[in-house]
C-alpha cells in the first residue's frame, strides 16, 4: 500500500478546492438560460442542448470532431504494439451480437432523430453506433476484407468535412461562422448531426481495430 499514502492528500487538495468554489458560488446565478430560451425559435430545433451544441456554439462541436480524429490517429500511431489472438467463437456471444447490433443501429438512428426536440443527438447516437461496432469487433468480426481503406477513411472524415464545408458556406453566405439561416437551420443541423454520428461511431469503433487496420496494407 505504498501508493495510498500519497493518494489521499493528492485527492483531498482538489476536493477542498472544488468544495470551496461550490460554496463560494453566488446564490442566484444569472447564467445564459434566458438568452438561450429567447433565441430558441431561430435555432431550428426545440431541444436547448442541441441548439447550443450545434447552433449557438457550433464552433465547439466542430473542434470536438477534430479532437476525436486526432485521438484516433494517436491510437493508430501506437498500432505496432498489439499481439492479439483471434477471438474464439462463442455461440452465446455470437447470437447475442447478432440480435444486439441491428437494435443498436436502430437505437442510434432514433437518438439522432430525437435529438432535435428531446435528449439525444449526434454524440449519444455515435456512441451507441460505436458500441455496436465494438461488440462486433470483440466477437471476432473483422473488417479488413469488406471495408477497404477508402470507405473507412471517408466515414472517419465525414463529420469533420461536413462541419468544415458548412463553416465555409455559412462564412461565405452569412458572413459568420456556422450561422445558419433560421428557415433552413433545422435541416442543416440534421445533416451535420448525421455526418457527425457516422464519424463518431466509426471513430470509436476504429479505436479498437488492431494493427491489421487498413492503414497498413503490408500487414493485412
Amino acid at each position: 500500500m505504498e501508493r495510498n499514502r500519497w493518494l489521499l492528500p493528492l485527492l483531498l487538495t482538489p476536493a477542498m478546492g472544488l468544495g470551496y468554489s461550490v460554496l463560494s458560488l453566488p446564490e442566484h446565478a444569472q447564467g445564459l438560460q434566458h438568452l438561450v430560451a429567447d433565441k430558441m425559435e431561430v435555432s431550428g430545433v426545440s431541444n436547448p442542448v442541441t441548439a447550443v451544441l450545434l447552433n449557438f456554439r457550433g464552433y465547439d462541436t466542430l473542434l470536438e470532431m477534430f479532437v476525436l480524429l486526432l485521438a484516433l490517429l494517436g491510437v493508430w500511431s501506437l498500432g505496432g504494439l498489439s499481439l492479439r489472438r483471434e477471438a474464439a467463437s462463442d455461440l452465446v456471444l455470437d447470437t447475442m451480437v447478432r440480435f444486439l447490433v441491428p437494435v443498436l443501429i436502430l437505437a442510434a438512428a432514433y437518438l439522432l432523430w430525437v435529438g432535435a426536440h428531446a435528449p439525444g443527438g449526434a454524440f449519444q447516437a455515435g456512441a451507441v453506433l460505436g458500441a455496436a461496432g465494438v461488440l462486433s469487433l470483440l466477437s471476432g468480426w473483422r473488417c479488413h476484407l469488406g471495408l477497404a481503406p477508402l470507405p473507412l477513411r471517408l466515414a472517419l472524415a465525414a463529420g469533420p468535412v461536413a462541419f468544415l464545408a458548412m463553416s465555409g458556406c455559412t462564412l461565405l453566405i452569412a458572413g459568420r461562422l456556422l450561422q445558419y439561416p433560421p428557415a433552413q437551420a433545422g435541416i442543416l443541423i440534421l445533416i451535420l448531426e448525421t455526418a457527425a454520428t457516422v464519424s463518431i461511431g466509426v471513430t470509436l469503433t476504429a479505436l479498437f481495430l488492431d494493427k491489421q487496420h487498413p492503414g497498413n496494407k503490408d500487414q493485412t
Partner: peptide, 14 residues
C-alpha cells in the same frame, strides 16, 4: 438527461 446518456455510453461503456 443529455449528459447522463453521454456518460453511460462513453464514460462507462466505451
Amino acid at each position: 438527461p443529455d449528459v447522463a446518456l453521454a456518460e453511460a455510453a462513453v464514460g462507462a461503456g466505451l
